[in-house]
């Protein structure tokens, strides 16, 4: 028995180099469809006829494009802040439900609706809050006129539609952290004379802090990169950065390719920064679990 183990170890060592070959198919796909295109995108954004320069970036940032970035960042900030806060309190309401059946059903609902988005969702919001939508008509009948002051086909309309997938995503992200918030801590704090506000300010929020922040980054990125929902709901009228980049790919606007690359690279780094922030903070958040 001993000798067979040694033999297999020996052959394993010999095969070590061969073992890595098994990774090749995945690596080829990843490199071919992800790494090389992105690297070439970055390098092409810095190259001009004169050589390496920031010219593309200088030219790309017209006032119109600056406004697109500003709109995208604002939209992402608003939907991330609202998504984090609403998702957090709804998640807390769900977790403190005593009825297990209701709790499981609500978690399942959040789980499913996280994946809803894109074109059908955008259309659902037109049916609900469009100029002749259900809520619009109901409010009209009681004398509240949404239109023309509010439009679902605008940036604030987009925020309402984005929250549809941001809130359940936040619930799913924060549930593990909320489950880790031990009942004993709450009881100990109350027994020592703290009120619920003091508990949250001194214990709850500081412990959940890293989870809340890391979720914020994911929600921000989720909103910043969104395109299908925005395009279906508002068409080319709303000036956000993903719509701008998409219209450059589809050749609707005459513009040098280097400029589109510059916009894409800036967006890419904003999102990568968010994903990096998420990874960093979520590893910190894990300290309080288990």
């Amino acid at each position: 028995m001993k000798s067979t183990i040694q033999v297999s170890k020996l052959s394993n060592r010999k095969k070590k180099g061969v073992n890595w070959i098994a990774l090749f198919p995945l690596l080829i796909f990843s490199i071919g469809f992800q790494v090389i295109p992105i690297i070439s995108l970055i390098s092409s954004s810095f190259s001009t006829k004169q050589g390496i320069s920031l010219e593309n970036y200088q030219h790309a940032f017209t006032p119109h494009i600056m406004e697109a970035f500003q709109n995208s960042i604002q939209l992402s900030l608003v939907t991330a802040v609202l998504g984090v806060s609403l998702g957090f309190i709804v998640g807390y309401a769900i977790i403190s439900t005593d009825n297990k059946l209701v709790k499981d059903a609500l978690i399942a609902l959040a789980d499913v609706t996280t994946n809803f988005g894109g074109a059908p969702l955008a259309f659902a919001f037109i049916v609900t809050l469009g100029s002749t939508g259900v809520i619009t008509l109901v409010l009209k009948s009681i004398g509240v006129f949404l239109y023309p002051n509010f439009r679902i086909y605008s940036i604030s309309g987009l925020a309402i539609a984005y929250l549809y997938f941001q809130i359940p995503l936040m619930i799913m992200l924060i549930l593990p952290a909320l489950q880790g918030l031990k009942k004993e801590w709450w009881e100990a704090a109350i027994n020592m004379g703290a009120n619920s506000q003091q508990f949250w300010m001194r214990i709850g929020i500081p412990i959940l802090g890293p989870s809340l922040m890391s979720s914020f980054f994911i929600l921000f990125a989720n909103s910043f990169g969104a395109y299908a929902t925005a395009w279906t709901l508002t068409g080319p009228d709303v000036n956000i950065i993903t719509v701008q980049i998409a219209s450059l790919i589809r050749g609707e606007v005459q513009l040098e390719i280097g400029l589109a690359d510059a916009l894409a690279v800036v967006s890419l780094f904003i999102i990568l920064f968010c994903v990096g922030g998420y990874l960093f903070l979520s590893s910190k958040a894990k300290r309080f679990r288990a």
């Binding site: 990843s30 469809f33 992800q34 090389i36 295109p37 992105i38 070439s40 995108l41 092409s44 990125a221 910043f224 990169g225 395109y227 993903t242 980049i245 998409a246 450059l248 790919i249 390719i257 589109a260 690359d261 894409a264 967006s267 890419l268 999102i271 990568l272 994903v275 990874l279």
Partner: peptide, 19 residues
Amino acid sequence: ILPFGIPTVVLALALVQVY
């Protein structure tokens, strides 16, 4: 984790150009 860091419009632009 990489695919989450690349917005789909950016991936589309990169792929269309390279290929």
